[in-house]
Design a protein around this nucleic acid. Structure first.
Lengths: 221, 221, 221, 221
DNA sequence: GATGAATGAGCATTCATTCAT
DNA sequence: CATGAATGAATGCTCATTCAT
């Protein structure tokens, strides 16, 4: 229990509330202006601290950017791990993950903007600790997909990594569109569609396997 | 006829070869350095022209960036339109589009970098003429998907726009991974997998054991 | 007796040992990094106190710099005044001063660095109390030189101020070279050379004054 | 002949007059404000160019500083080399060098300030090309001193390097004093004193009374 | 007396862009 | 057409310094 406290204050010493405020401000500003256009001054103003204070908590503008996903992804992932065991069936778990994934971005539009429009294009982000957490959250999909194969829910010849890429790609594409065009009004509403398409495909005759009928005709006599 | 002349000199008057050289240089530099890090000086050096000359052809650094996809997407789309009519069946056409889409990025890695890491995150790109062409190429998918519904190849209850989003998302996700991590060695090799997953889904088709029907025909007498 | 108390707490109240530690740290850091490059943080770390503590003892970075020579020069000068009376002859006294002067820097290379590379170029230092002590130590030379003139050891037509300038200049030049290039391995070894050059010059025929010979030829008759 | 022109424009391409103007402005500003206090903006204003233009000619503030002595020392040294051959006797040559040395600083008080208060304390200057020229000018002294030993004008047991150090040290000390305190009103007026002290030393030459020799020639008869 | 935390003030440097030639 | 040369405009980042605790 005692080790839970340090967990939250692990990274940012000093006043963790101030650190959080700065991060929120950064998320807000970056989401609206982009990385280059946003200035430290903007963020400082928004966070109501001095520019120098930002540098007390984050060593550079880019580090500040990279620190944005940390908290949020951490919580996201913890919640996932907490709930998943209670869901039965790989298909249901997969549907859950897709829903959570969409909800993550739907509930945090600024965060969505930052991730989709800024972080995704920054190769340096891959070297980041925060990226590790992202990766670990990606593992959920792999596990569920493999579980589904074993339980005979999913086709055994599918490649979990490609399927995950499709799921992520689909979701990110939708989120990006929403960020840029505001188009899919609701992201989470798409959960079922995404899941179904993935699960049963788009082929018209939904897998009516040929039925073999043996007809034994016998005359009762 | 009158529209042929403008075609060659469409956007950039003067020496079109020089314009192309600048664009290629820009693509190369942007792909490696990113938009902000790349300098006009870098591009000028690579293109072996002076910086001022670049401004003779493109009015700003951003316009230069936005001009990169133009030519390539145009050709891509023209070829698509040319070939599609000769492919029979919506499913086959869809497979073809996916293959072409993957090949586009596989064959032009610098271009892939620019699009995935730079352009996608730039909201201004959406206002661009080049973006129109991208959109028009996106229409191919819609047409084919609707065609498939009509022809009873695809489920009538699917949403073509969501499906397209899934296809695009999947492809872009894979391309981005390839750009950043070099991971999927071959993109086009994934055509079949993507298509199949989309077409038939990942649901296991449980061994449906032959159904034995014993018909006892008895004559009531 | 009353002047003994202030002696220990002369400038820096509070814990004089801490003040000394800070000064030593400052000397060390300034000597290696120069004034601008050195940071209060560096010095605080070296002195194992907080930055704020430094400001408890010294009101500014520059004041800290200017405080460095104080102690050392004071001791130097006191010792000089103590010993000088026991040396006979202005020439011997001059030799002694040169030796002491060289030894001062030789024995305190960090101090030498600070004085030669930093303090000497800072016009504000001239307004400093510490500079007074330096000046007073400079007086030693004048006194000895004037004493030498009176005692007929030194040429009466020399200008003590110029001679002192030559001595100081020579010494400082050598010390600076040693600081920057490490070149004259030993400074004190040069005492004799410096003194001799000054004393007898570099002219080859060492002052053999024309001999007047009156020849009276008389014939003994 | 053709290679004489490039000589002057060797270093600064573009408009060499502008480069010179910038250097003069820098000399002026640095002399008054010191290196850190002076700003590029100050210099730009003084030189009537934009700050960016300064960076077209000099890659950094420090490089600008280091470039200041170049021209002036070059000319100084060329003139020395031109005249020296026409002066007869090592002693005369030495006097000439001292005079030139003093005049250099006397005639260029800003330059004197920069060299004495700024450059001398900057270890990086030693790695500079300009420093090479300074070193070469220092060679003059060595040559003349060695020449004087060979010609029997100077004591054979003196160390030319120490003597040179004394000369330089004396001069630099006087120049520095003049820079900081304005004290020796005229530097060049000290030529004779410096030279004489060095040449004949400060030892009093005790009145050697004429020696009367009475020669009595007697003819033994 | 000591210091953790916060910040005000300041500046070198970089380019995209322009324009006279 | 092409470009050499000039610059306007903009901003991360650093510390010396302060002050409440």
């Amino acid at each position: 229990m005692a080790n839970k406290a340090p967990k939250s204050s692990q990274k940012n010493l000093k006043n963790p509330k101030k650190a959080a405020a700065i991060l929120k401000a950064a998320e807000h500003i970056f989401a609206r202006k982009g990385f280059q256009t946003a200035t430290i001054s903007d963020i400082a103003k928004k966070a109501k601290v001095s520019e120098a204070t930002i540098y007390e908590y984050f060593s550079s503008k880019e580090e500040l950017l990279f620190a944005i996903p940390g908290e949020i992804i951490q919580h996201y992932q913890e919640k996932n791990r907490e709930i998943l065991p209670y869901i039965h069936g790989a298909a249901n778990k997969l549907r859950f993950l897709i829903h959570r994934h969409l909800a993550l971005y739907e509930d945090n539009p600024d965060y969505a903007n930052v991730v989709m429009l800024i972080l995704k294009g920054n190769p340096n982000f891959l070297k980041t600790e925060a990226y590790r957490v992202v990766q670990s959250s990606a593992q959920n999909y792999i596990q569920v997909l493999e579980e589904g194969i074993e339980s005979n829910e999913f086709r055994p010849d599918m490649d979990p990594y490609v399927i995950r890429a499709m799921i992520w790609g689909s979701i990110e594409h939708l989120v990006t569109r929403k960020s840029l065009l505001g188009k899919p009004a609701s992201l989470t509403d798409l959960t079922e569609t995404l899941f179904n398409t993935l699960f049963i495909g788009i082929r018209a005759t939904p897998e009516q396997p040929p039925v073999h009928i043996n007809v034994h005709m016998s005359r009762s006599e």
